[in-house]
């Protein structure tokens, strides 16, 4: 067991190293000079050179790569080219929006998906099942940014219940903050809820067919009791796996929604940083997201093995 964990740890380190190199290389070859971008069209060449020197862009890529990696190991992400503030501070500030947004969306999606999935599974084959599952098919097919646009049209422009975008800051009060995140969270949650409901249903249906469920029914439990006592627990593994996947997706995948609603979150930070060629910010945020996924995967792998050593050679 210890040896297994050790090899997995080694491969984790290798993955992270490869990832950092890939990210750095990918971002390094993007054409466009941050200094030229910042100084605009009337800038003279010597001015651009001076700014490049000020930003530390005149050193070799290899030097910058090692500077970046060694900084990150000690928790120092460097300083943004455009904003001239420490990147770790910027990320922390943006996380205060992205993290709550992802959590609310996830909570919403779970709250919708569980009852819907259970309902459909327990009435498998019925008209209810068909209708509910039809809606989830639709939910999976709707592009979330389009759904967001429609919600802005209805709830922000026509009804004026919500503002169409922006984030007033948590200083303005919890309610104001949550209100600003409502429409974005719903747009993010809808497709996720549909997916989760479908997974929930099929996982439940699968367990309903298994022997222990027949035994449970034979023991005199009715369908509802059987589902509550036995099937749900067994269906949780695929459902939790999907929830875990969705969380990392929501954190990174909210870029478009953050742009539609103009939320100053992590996604918009990267999007802006790319167009401003604030490359060091892009590198750090992408690395952070990749790091999060790789480490979570690692933890999940280890957890599975601890629970069931037979799983070791799969995957």
């Amino acid at each position: 067991m210890a040896r297994y964990i050790l090899t997995r740890l080694l491969s984790l380190l290798i993955s992270l190293t490869v990832a950092s190199a890939v990210i750095f290389a990918l971002i390094e070859i993007i054409p466009g000079d941050p200094a030229a971008f910042m100084l605009g069209i009337n800038a003279q060449d010597d001015t651009i050179a001076a700014l490049r020197a000020e930003l530390g862009l005149d050193t070799s890529p290899l030097e910058r790569y090692f500077g970046w990696v060694s900084g990150m190991v000690t928790g120092d992400f460097g300083t943004s080219y455009t904003y001239r503030t420490p990147i770790s501070e910027m990320i922390a500030e943006r996380l205060w929006i992205s993290l709550p947004l992802a959590l609310i969306a996830l909570a919403l999606s779970t709250l919708i998906a569980f009852p819907v999935g259970i309902l459909a599974a327990s009435k498998r084959g019925s008209l209810t099942d068909t209708i509910v599952m039809g809606f989830t098919q639709l939910g999976v097919a709707i592009p979330n940014f389009w759904f967001a646009m429609l919600m802005v049209l209805v709830f922000a422009i026509n009804l004026r219940w919500f503002s169409a975008g922006g984030f007033p800051g948590w200083d303005e009060g919890l309610f104001t903050g949550l209100k600003a995140l409502t429409l974005p969270a719903i747009s993010l949650a809808l497709p996720q809820a549909s997916i989760l409901a479908r997974v929930m249903r099929s996982a439940l249906v699968d367990t309903l067919d298994e022997d222990f469920m027949r035994t449970a029914r034979a023991k005199g439990l009715n369908r509802r009791q059987a589902i509550q006592r036995h099937a749900l627990r067994n269906a949780m593994i695929p459902v939790l796996t999907i929830i875990g996947l969705q969380f990392s997706f929501l954190l990174a995948g909210a870029i478009i929604i953050e742009n539609v609603f103009f939320l100053p979150g992590l996604g918009r930070l990267v999007f802006q940083a790319i167009s401003q060629r604030d490359l060091i910010v892009v590198e750090s945020v992408v690395m952070l997201l990749v790091f999060a996924v790789i480490v979570v995967n690692f933890a999940v792998d280890i957890a599975y093995v601890l629970v069931d050593p037979r799983l070791r050679r799969q995957g």
Partner: peptide, 12 residues
């Protein structure tokens, strides 16, 4: 590859 945020990489 799975660990990379796909939309971000597409943008890059």
């Amino acid at each position: 590859v799975f660990a990379f945020p796909s939309l971000l990489i597409a943008i890059l």
